[in-house]
Design a protein around this nucleic acid. Structure first.
Length: 571
RNA sequence: CGGAGCGUGGCGCAGUUUGGUAGCGCACCUGCUUUGGGAGCAGGGGGUCGAAGGUUCAAAUCCUUUCGCUCCGACCA
């Protein structure tokens, strides 16, 4: 039986903000008694929180099923073999919780399920007639995150809906991908969230196209570039802009200049009275143990994702102080591309025609000026390596300007292609009886993260304001005082609304009015009905809509119809 | 992993500088009063001060080690 009486509900609300929480959703999830922490990034969901999760799961299932995906349940505990097959055992590395069973066989807790699905399907799918297929599950993922954060926003254990499409070719994949894209838009909209699709980097999943679905919020961990004019939207990890090449047309000889203790671009600007655009910023990086010097304009920032993708590196990090001498034969603060032998040098495309540049001299307290790319140093490639900034021109329409906003990634879809099927040997036979690799896509929604995102987007000083589709209960009834008539009438209303199919919570606790009001606002139930002896005498109850905290009186005689009407107006 | 900070009844905190009987608010239990915006009075229960080791007559407080948690960076649903 579903508990709908607050006196019996395990709902430990908190009056004060917990010290451990920083962002609003985290604070409110703890204060509203939705969850409790077990360990860093690992939570127990209490009745209220779990009801919200189940609502989101239900909406997600509906749209997945409508798009003809089929629900399965895949193992959490996975053998190391399949991960070695796909060549991700090392790539995912420490992100996976790994362990051995009593027979010393190696396992991990699934951080994602591409391997399991591919393994599952490679033994079963034989013919092109078996495809296309889309399998999905809603399940707990385990990732030993480098830094769990913001409660459920970035947990080490979290609930995810993940789907995997299997097609015979790329046309099929495009169709499957579009179907998921559309389903995702419907899922987020039905949850009452404002989410936008943006072009995204593929990261550890690999593959071609990829979109992320972002909920805009100040606490978001991602930055998204939007065009003010057209529909261009991209994660800054991969966003581009129209930005002209730099060319100062200086043909003078290279000259060494003394720059004592001047290490940063801004110090150089001040010391030499030269704008940063005339400098080349040389960033010493180490990619999978190999030294790489990345060059961008002095006014730009290196985009490490773009560099990682260009290098196809597994791990990219900034060089450490000691490594400057060792790996680069240079010195921190004065590193530059000229005469830097045996180090890979990659430059941002804006520098292609640059001349008259100021660069580090690879010697303490010295820089070089009048440096020209191609003449004074060679690079292995000019490619896009910079991060866009707000105000730059849109790469797509050329008319708008880019705005940058923070977002929470609640969904991510990938065109994986044949990476997994080829590595793991998941083939089908085409019409000609020829073996072909299955073309795959993968599609994720962070269910628990979605809960946090919904709160980030819907709250006020009093607490959560649930969109009605994912609210743990639709209506809360507050009987005030010990008056017999109030108790009787409240119970009657409660029973009637329940009988009509509403999800009603009744605060039958022996608490004062203020406590009940405050808790009801904290836990964010969309519609509140307050029943007190004064209003009963007038034949009315007070309704409050949490969305905007507006209050109105509704006639007792007409209560059920009024509730219906009010609820329909709530978003 | 690098940088910063915090661990004291269930929750929020003071006490640590300068060692000397563990405190406050909320919550909880009992009684009386109160009852439409986090009640009042009276009484009461609950803490190996994260852990281990050390210094000392004496350690929440000083020293060493260690574990956990939070925040800033790399990772991602």
């Amino acid at each position: 039986m579903i508990r709908m009486r607050m006196s019996k509900l395990y709902l430990p609300t908190l009056k004060e903000d917990p010290a451990e929480a920083e962002v609003i959703s985290h604070k409110l999830m703890l204060r509203a008694g939705m969850m409790r922490k077990h360990s860093s990034g690992i939570y127990s969901y209490l009745p209220l929180g779990y009801r919200v999760i189940k609502k989101i799961e239900k909406i997600t299932r509906k749209h997945m099923d409508m798009s003809e995906a089929q629900e399965v349940l895949l193992p959490i505990m996975q053998t190391s073999e399949i991960w070695k097959d796909s060549k991700r055992w090392d790539k995912f590395g420490p992100l996976m919780i790994k362990f051995n069973d009593r027979k010393a066989r190696e396992y991990c807790l699934g951080p994602t399920h591409e391997e399991v699905v591919t393994d599952l399907v490679r033994d079963e799918v034989r013919s092109y007639k078996d495809l296309p297929l889309n399998l999905y599950q809603i399940q707990t993922k385990v990732r030993d995150e480098i830094r769990p954060r913001f409660g459920v926003m970035r947990g080490r254990e979290f609930i995810m809906k993940d789907a995997y499409s299997l097609d015979i070719d790329y046309q099929g994949l495009d169709k499957s991908y579009q179907a998921m894209f559309d389903a995702y838009e419907r899922i987020f909209a039905e949850c009452g969230l404002e989410a936008v699709a943006v072009e995204a980097d593929t990261g550890a999943m690999g593959g071609k196209d990829s979109h992320e679905f972002m909920v805009l919020a100040d606490s978001g961990e991602d930055e998204i570039a939007f065009c003010s004019h057209c529909d261009y939207a991209a994660n800054v990890e991969r966003a581009t802009s129209k930005k002209t090449d730099i060319d100062f047309e200086v043909e003078a000889e290279v000259e060494k200049i003394h720059t004592p203790e001047i290490k940063t671009i801004s110090e150089l600007e001040e010391y030499l009275e030269v704008p940063a655009a005339k400098m080349i910023k040389a960033v010493a990086m180490v990619a999978d143990g190999e030294a790489v010097l990345a060059l961008v304009s002095g006014e730009d920032e290196l985009n490490e994702i773009k560099l990682t993708n260009y290098l196809q590196a597994n791990e990219l990090r900034a060089a450490e102080e000691e490594e400057f001498a060792e790996l680069f034969n240079s010195t921190a603060g004065f590193i530059g591309p000229v005469d830097l032998n045996k180090v890979r040098i990659v430059a941002d495309q804006r520098l292609k025609n640059m001349s008259g540049a100021i660069v580090g001299a690879n010697e303490k307290d010295y820089h070089l000026k009048n440096v020209k790319a191609g003449r004074d140093f060679e690079v292995e490639a000019f490619t896009d390596l910079r991060s866009v900034r707000g105000g730059e021109r849109c790469p797509k329409c050329d008319q708008g300007k880019l705005n940058i906003k923070d977002g929470i990634e609640v969904g991510h879809i990938f065109k994986l292609g044949t990476k997994y099927s080829e590595n793991m040997g998941a083939n089908y036979l085409d019409e000609n009886g020829k073996a072909q690799p299955i073309v795959m896509g993968s599609y994720g929604i962070g269910i628990t993260r979605l809960v946090a995102a919904a709160i980030e987007q819907n709250n006020d000083q009093y607490g959560i304001k649930w969109p009605k589709a994912i609210a743990p209960y639709q209506i809360i009834i507050l009987p005030l005082g010990n008056d017999d008539l109030v108790q009787e009438k409240s119970e009657e209303i409660y029973q009637n609304l329940k009988a009509q199919g509403w999800e009603v919570l009744i605060d039958d606790r022996d608490e004062r009015a203020g406590v009940k009001f405050n808790d009801s606002e904290l836990i964010g139930i969309p519609l509140r009905l307050t029943i007190g002896s004064r209003s009963l005498e007038n034949g009315v109850v007070e309704a409050m809509i949490r969305e905007n905290n507006s209050k109105l009186e509704i006639e007792l005689d007409n209560l059920e119809a009024e509730v219906e009407k009010l609820f329909a107006e709530i978003s």
